Simulated assay, not measured.
Amino acid sequence: MKLSVVILNYNVRYFLHQCILSVQRATKNIETEIIVIDNASADDSCQMVKDVFPHVTLIENKENVGFSKANNQAVKVATGEYVCILNPDTAVAEGAFEKCLGTLESSANIGAIGVYLLDGTGNFLPESKRNIPTPWVSLLKMLGFTKKYYASHLSEAETGHASVLVGAFMFLKRAIYNQVGGFDEDYFMYGEDIDLSYKIEQAGYKNHYIGSTETLHYKGESTQKDAAYLDRFYGAMQIFYKKHFSSNILLNSAVNFGVSVAKKMKSSTSETIQNTKPELSKAVLLTENLNLLKQLSETIQIPLNASSKAIFQDADLKDTLFIFDVDYMPYQQIFMVMKQFRNKNNQFRIRPPGCNFIIGSDKSDEKGSVLVF
C-alpha cells in the first residue's frame, strides 16, 4: 500500500462525507486506503460510512479518547508507506497527494509536509506554516505580534521549510511517524501537531510547506471556542514547554502569566463578537444539472440562477452566494475561485459530487453550515 489517509471524526457527518469523497478523487492514481476513526460521535457518522463507503476502514471508539490517541490507534492499523493525518472538515484538491509524494520522494531529509489551507471564506489560514513557538515567540503572539510565530519567510504560494505544520493536514512517511512515537498522548486536543512537528525536526528531518496546492479547512466545525477550548489550547502550550524547554522559575512565571492574560483576552473577545452575516443580493449555481437547479431553487431563500464558468470573467462579483457543483467544477478550480472572490461580501457553498446537501462556513472560527435538499 502506498498511502494511508487517516481521518479522525467527531460529530461532523456531512463534512466527513465530503472529505472522503475529495480524498477518493485526489487518490485515483495512488494505491490508497482510507481509515476513519470515530471518537464516539452522537450523529449518524458511522452509519453513513458503513452505508456509503463500505470499503473504508472504520474504527468506532466507545468514548472520545482525544486527537492524539485516536490518530495513533489508526496509524497502528495502517499499511501505507506514507500516511496523511487529515481533519474531517476538509476537502482536498485533486493532485495534492501526488505533489506531496513527489516532494517527499525527491529528498530523504524531508519530514512532514503541509499544504496551503484556506477556510470557508477563501482566506489563507496562517497556521498552515509556523515556526517553533518558543516561550518568547508565543508571548509575542499573545500580545498580537505574530511575525515570528508564523513562517513569514515564505509567502502563501511559495514552497519551502516550515518547522511547524497543522494537524488538519500532515503528510509523512509512516516510518518517521513511528520513529518519533506519533502524537504525544499527553495532549488531548490542541498542541499535538506542534509537538509532533518539533519531534520530527529534533530527529534530524526538515518539515516542508507546499504553497502550490490547496486543501479547504472549514475549521471550527469540530470545535466550539468556549471556556473548555481555551483551557485545552493554552494548557497544551504549557505541556509543550515543560516537555521541550529547560524549566526555570522565570520562564514558568512568564509562560503562566502570558497564558492567563491570553485566556482573558480571548474570552473577552469571544464575548463581544457579533454574529453578523452579509446581505446577499443573488445566488449563483455553477452547474450543468438543471434538476439540481430546480431542487436548490425550492430551498434557497434568494433568487438562484445557474451559470457557466464564464461568469468568473466578471472580476467585480460581490454580494453573491456561490454554490459550486463538484460534478461540474473540480475542487482545485473551486478553491481558485474562492481565493479570487474572497473579501467581496461573498459566501461559498459546495455541493459534493452526487450529494443532496451543500456545506460551507462563513467564519473560520465558527461552526459550519449544512443545507440538505
Score class of each variant (00 low, 15 high):
residue 7 I to H: 01
residue 7 I to D: 01
residue 12 V to H: 04
residue 13 R to V: 14
residue 17 H to V: 15
residue 21 L to F: 13
residue 21 L to V: 13
residue 22 S to D: 05
residue 37 I to R: 02
residue 38 D to W: 04
residue 51 D to Q: 12
residue 54 P to C: 01
residue 65 V to D: 03
residue 65 V to Y: 03
residue 66 G to E: 08
residue 68 S to T: 06
residue 73 Q to E: 06
residue 73 Q to F: 03
residue 75 V to K: 00
residue 78 A to T: 09
residue 79 T to N: 14
residue 85 I to R: 05
residue 87 N to G: 09
residue 91 A to V: 14
residue 104 L to Y: 08
residue 111 G to V: 08
residue 123 N to M: 15
residue 138 S to Y: 06
residue 143 L to M: 13
residue 146 T to S: 07
residue 148 K to H: 07
residue 152 S to W: 11
residue 153 H to L: 01
residue 159 T to N: 14
residue 167 G to Q: 05
residue 172 L to C: 10
residue 173 K to L: 09
residue 179 Q to V: 08
residue 183 F to C: 05
residue 188 F to G: 14
residue 189 M to A: 12
residue 193 D to R: 12
residue 194 I to R: 02
residue 200 I to F: 00
residue 202 Q to M: 14
residue 216 L to R: 01
residue 218 Y to E: 06
residue 220 G to W: 11
residue 224 Q to T: 11
residue 229 Y to Q: 12
residue 233 F to C: 11
residue 244 H to D: 05
residue 265 M to T: 04
residue 274 Q to Y: 09
residue 275 N to D: 14
residue 275 N to H: 13
residue 281 S to Y: 05
residue 283 A to F: 03
residue 284 V to I: 12
residue 289 N to G: 09
residue 298 E to S: 08
residue 304 L to F: 05
residue 307 S to N: 07
residue 309 K to T: 09
residue 310 A to Q: 15
residue 311 I to Q: 03
residue 318 K to W: 06
residue 318 K to E: 10
residue 328 Y to H: 04
residue 335 F to T: 12
residue 335 F to M: 12
residue 338 M to W: 00
residue 346 N to T: 13
residue 348 F to Q: 00
residue 361 S to F: 03
residue 362 D to Y: 13
residue 368 G to Q: 03
residue 371 L to Q: 08
